[in-house]
Structure formats: structure tokens, C-alpha cells
Design a protein around this nucleic acid. Sequence first.
DNA 1: GTCTATACTTCGATAGAC
DNA 2: GTCTATCGAAGTATAGAC
Lengths: 204, 204
Amino acid sequence: MYSAAVTTNPPPDRAASPAAERLVEATRELLWERGYTGTSPKAVQQRAGAGQGSMYHHFAGKSDLALAAITRTAEELRARADGLLSGPGTAVERVTAYLRRERDVLRGCPVGRLTQDPEVMADPLLRAPVEQTLGWLRGRLAEVLAEGRASGELPPSVDPSGTAATVVAVLQGGYVLARAAGSPEPFDQAVTGLLALLSPPRPA
Amino acid sequence: MYSAAVTTNPPPDRAASPAAERLVEATRELLWERGYTGTSPKAVQQRAGAGQGSMYHHFAGKSDLALAAITRTAEELRARADGLLSGPGTAVERVTAYLRRERDVLRGCPVGRLTQDPEVMADPLLRAPVEQTLGWLRGRLAEVLAEGRASGELPPSVDPSGTAATVVAVLQGGYVLARAAGSPEPFDQAVTGLLALLSPPRPA
DNA sequence: GTCTATACTTCGATAGAC
DNA sequence: GTCTATCGAAGTATAGAC
């Protein structure tokens, strides 16, 4: 019941016009790179190649633009994750595929990043997609891990909910370590370390 | 060799005067709460109860103040972690103590947070303490995990470096999940899930 | 050491012409 | 729909008096 139903809908009405569309995309990029506080309307306009008037015609203001951007980013993340977690393979294979999927590690997670922005977290409208997306991801992973336990791939000692939180935390924290180190290496180490714990080399 | 040598030195010269000291503390708090971009000199002055002139007398500017604040925060984190990791108990007990230590989960990690601030990461002076602290933490944890493997507490399949990255990532990512959820619960779940994987209930 | 005054820029938004 | 003009506030500092 947690699963997809993610038909590739056309983007929301907001992006009906080309200018609005470019504004949303520019905002998505800037929120990812600089966060909400670090992103000014002017910077968005410049990256989008749109003028002041155009921006305020299509959007009520900075937070309205951010809402459109965050909503779309959250939907994308969810669709991508669900594609792998609901794909072919055993439970452990699917979790592994998700953990090992190609990532622009040094850029970090465009959703998790927003978590560090007090202005985003203080606004219920902006915060909702962040909370929901990460909540959904934990839930979906818990389902897959529960499958793995039921099928005997994973030992009964594996608690699906807890382990799901561990898995997502390793990803989110892996990004932090990678950025601190200026290298994707710690991210890969963290993932490898987790997988070694999850499916150890056939103990007696 | 990674271990302490952390004598409780008096704070750096910077904080010799009471005003400078209050400015550094105010900056530490604000960096934690709002990040570098979100922290203005004026806000620092107000929280410190110091005037414009006072601040610019003691510090060259915003980034100089931030350097003093970040340096101190990094030193504190390291001292606290080392206290637990070099304390009494078996290797797994010490790692567990570190993972379970009391934390203000919703506030997150004052060092890991800076990782999301492009202005901090772009400045080598500000970035260095972040990189070093998290690097040191991974190294120190790897040492403790290696002890645990040598003593038979942990299976030979546990790679110290990788697992150390996993442990730190779970903490950093746990903060992210907690902030997203608005509750410490996912953090605790992630830690519990990790510990269950690290020391499973006596398999055959 | 600390204060006040001043300066210049950017932020986030509105107004009204086209 | 988009442009330019304008606005009041805040950001980040410098200058010089006390």
C-alpha cells in the first residue's frame, strides 16, 4: 500500500508557461546548492533568465516558488526510490540496488538538505514534503526489509522499522561525511560497512 | 596515537576579554541554529550584548568570528567523543556508550551542520576544523572497532574503517531524519537498528 | 575597548508602464 | 506576461569620537 502509483504526471500547473518552468528548475538547483536562506529571488531570476516582473507574476514570492520547487524534488526522489525498491530481485538485492545506485554524492540529498534550513522547517507548507518524503522512504524500506525477514534472507533479529531508519540514516549521514571530506569515499565506505552488517559472509 | 591528549586548555587568546568571549559563544549558538549564511553580525552582537564597535575591535569580521566559534565547537566535540571512546568497557560497550550518549537530537550536530553551508566549505580556514574533526572521529572509531574484532567481540567480517564510517553516518543521518520528522524517534530507531546489526542476539 | 555615524550592497517585494 | 522604477529593511563593514 506504500508502493508506487507514480504515473509520470506532467508537472503541476505552475509550470505551464516556459518562464515559470525555468524559474522552478532554477529554484530547485539553487535550493540544492545553497539552501533556502542562501537563495535569493534575484539569483533565481538570473539563473532562469527571467525578469523580476515575470517571477512575481507567476509566483507570489520566494516561499511560493520554493514550495513548487520542493514539491517537485520530493516527487522525483520518491519515484526514483520506488522504482528500485519495487523492482525485480530479492529484498536484500533491492535494498542493495538502492544503496548502490549512482549518486552525485558530493551534492548530497536535495530533500535531506532542507532539513538544515530553519526557515523551511518553520513553515508547515514547505516542511510537509520533506517530512512526508523521508517518512515514506523509511516506511517503504521497512516493507522491503520485512519481506526479506519473512523469506529468511534476513535474520529474525532484524527489526524492519529500525533497520529502515538505519539504512536511510547511513545515506543521509554518508553525504555529510563525504562533504566534510571533500570526497565520495566515506559515503561509499559507510554503505559498504552497512551492507557487510546486513548480509555478513555466511556465518556458521 | 589517535587518542586524547586533550587537556582542558583555557579557551584561545581570542576570548581573553569578556566581550570577545560572549561574542564567540553567541556565534557558536547561532551557527548551530541558523548556519553561517543565516547568521548576521548584528544578530551575534545582540545575542552577545555587545556593540558593533566591540565586535569589530575583537574580530576582523564575520568569518574571523566564525573561525573562532567553529574551532572551539570542534575541539569540544572531539574531547567529548574521546572521553567515551577511550573510557572503560569493552570495544562494543564504548561504541554503544557513544551512540547512546545523551544528545539534543533535534538540534543536530554542530559540526556536521556546517557541511551544508557552501560558504563554510568554500573557505579553507573554516572548512579545516570540520574536515579534521569528522576525519578524526572516523579514525578513532575504527581503532576501537579494530580492538573489538581483535578481541573476538566482533566478527572478522567487520571492516573497521568501513564500519566506523557507517557508525558516524548513522548519527549524522539520524539527526536529519529526526529533524524531518520533528521527533527524536527516527534517530533512536536508527541507532537501535545499527546496534542490532553490530551485535546480533547470539546467532548459532 | 566601546560608541555612534555613515556607506554601500543586497534582500524581498510592490507599482505601474508597456 | 514582462519590464523598469522605486521602496524600506537588513547585511557587512569602515571612520572617527570618546
